[in-house]
Amino acid sequence: MTNDTPVSELSFEAAMTELEKVVGQLENGQVPLEESIALYQRGAELKKHCEAKLKAAEEKVAQITLDGEGNPAGLKPVEGL
């Protein structure tokens, strides 16, 4: 019943969507006890994963430098914008 994909490989959105589903199933109360426990564990992992993604919100702005022919040559940090 739970998804087999390792939580660490999920995108934020996928993890969030699955967490919502897990919560819904658990609240429903129709799932057997063993499965409830598995669902809870999966839900806890998903929550941790999403939390980590949210905390990793970091701004980093760079501008691409172009060579004479207009091809990207490198990056330079952008500050003060």
């Binding site: 980093k60 702005v61 760079a62 501008q63 691409i64 172009l66 990056l75």
Partner: peptide
């Protein structure tokens, strides 16, 4: 909203 990595292509 949500600080992200941004690449600017001038």
């Amino acid at each position: 909203r949500f600080p992200r990595k941004v690449l600017i292509w001038p």
